[in-house]
Design a protein around this nucleic acid. Sequence first.
RNA 1: CGGGGCGUAGCUCAGCCUGGUAGAGCGCUACCUUCGGGAGGUAGAAGUCGCAGGUUCAACUCCUGUCGCCCCGACCA
Length: 568
Amino acid sequence: MRLSRFHLVTVKESPGDAEIVSHQLMLRTGMIRKLAAGIYTWSPIGLRVLRKVEQVVREEMDRAGALELLMPAVQPRELWEETGRWEKFGGQLLKIKDRKEADYCFGPTHEEVITDFARQELQSYKQLPVNFYQIQWKFRDEIRPRFGVMRAREFLMKDSYSFHVTVEDMAREYRNMYDTYARIFTRLGLSFRAVQADSGAIGGNVSHEFHVLAESGEDAIAFSTGSEYAANVELAEAVAPATPRPAPGAALATVDTPGQKTIEDVSKFLGVPATQTVKTLIVQGRDEGSLVALVLRGDHELNEVKASKLAELPGAATFAPEGAIVAAIGCTPGSIGPAGLPAAIPVIVDRAAAVLADFVAGANVEGKHLTGINWERDARITRVADLRKVVEGDASPDGKGTLRIGRGIEVGHVFQLGQKYAEAMQATVLDETGKARTPYMGCYGVGVSRIVAAAIEQNFDGNGIIWPEPMAPWRIAVCVINPKNDEAVRKAAEELHDELQRRGVEVVLDDRGLRPGVMFADIELIGVPHRVVVSARGMEAGTLEYRARRATEAENISREALFAKLGV
RNA sequence: CGGGGCGUAGCUCAGCCUGGUAGAGCGCUACCUUCGGGAGGUAGAAGUCGCAGGUUCAACUCCUGUCGCCCCGACCA
């Protein structure tokens, strides 16, 4: 490729509304241009990168035995009525009408269409298992699209759907896809983690998300230093402390703590570490007007997802209004503690708080706290539960290593769907006894366009993008110094470009004749992994100047050494 | 959906408070000089100031409405 014939438009300044580095760099390199909120044009250079990702995904899916097909982007309402999702999908579903006023939507996902395809195509168990995939543009009318193609409304996705006679076979394919995804992200040169995800409304089903690790990630994930364990922070289990609760050593005593409301205030005032205190949160119980006390160690935070799943709560953790607390307990939230709570209030204690002895908490009297509190002796425990958010340094739930908290960008999701869609849409196959059976399904998604942004978040420096080689628009750039004034140099560069191309290297020749500084800045900005400079100076010495994108210094090498570096 | 902000040249922005008929830098075009890390000069093209009303002798500027975009939150997964 000759850059003089390519459309490359770069800019020095990035638009003020681009917040994260991938968005800024994709705009500065001209990879994408916004048409409307969350809707982008992919320019020739952007598309080159997108196609690279797409190709890796396609190769690995093919290798895993999946079959590519292509489903319509526009889907009729009737299909969505069958699964109830025309209404349930909510505002993310972009609904459109045709000239006859008939309802359609622009596909945000394709469970309905594939299940419709399956019920027509699949008649016999002999056709199973089968895994269909497509790489296609989806549209989800996000409430707040942001960060460029990271969270766009229109985005390129690889989605696949597998069909199985048995649950066991569904699980086998799930594992196959899990491994395939790991291969895809490894090949793309990304640092990632497979993370346990919420099984959601369909209980018991298994689900994993694949996250690219990056500071700017929208999801917090907890992962073990000593094993493969990783989970969404909301789901990560905080295991019970290994050490048992010590025996009581101190007598219960009341102390005046005027105006000391927060744990920080109280621990500073009394000179007691926050880890020796507990906080008591009063939330609304399942029955109208009832209250429940949730007790956590002073330095821990409530995990609302875990709390909302407690049987004593109405399905959500909602703090009780102050008035109700004063009426039931006799003091405001700053002075509440587990000792001496009314018998009607269940006391659910977090695992870490339950092993404390001689601890400090509110006295349930305004402006007073108790010291030397001990469970059973001074305060009742209705039951112990996992209530808190995990923190850095917690033991990993699988017993290996400790947890670290990081941020991730979700680029893949694998899910065992079970029979939900096949049942709703009456898809069946005949088994070996001639009986109709409802197949089990799995579904698996990869955010192809999001991967491009995620890769940049993980690979950039002050000069621009540093593409992992498999995603780079070109593998090497041949830069010519002063091609206009020096015919011999220009010819030599073209010859080198042609030779690299003959050897199967994706090469771009920067023959635009720009000043060297501008040319180098552009080539670095667009993240080409290798660069070689052809100049009069080099020709005299009989060497080429080579520099890897991540290197700080260039080196003078022979033509053969260059080919060796590229492995050609 | 609630709160906040912004729409002025291809891009980044100033001008608006205090009304008098539009500017800078970058980019773009031509020419000259320059030519190994975002060169210098000369000349030039380019904006119905998001849109629609209103106030006024006069509106980019003030008022009302509207559309678009961005941020925070809630919502959704």
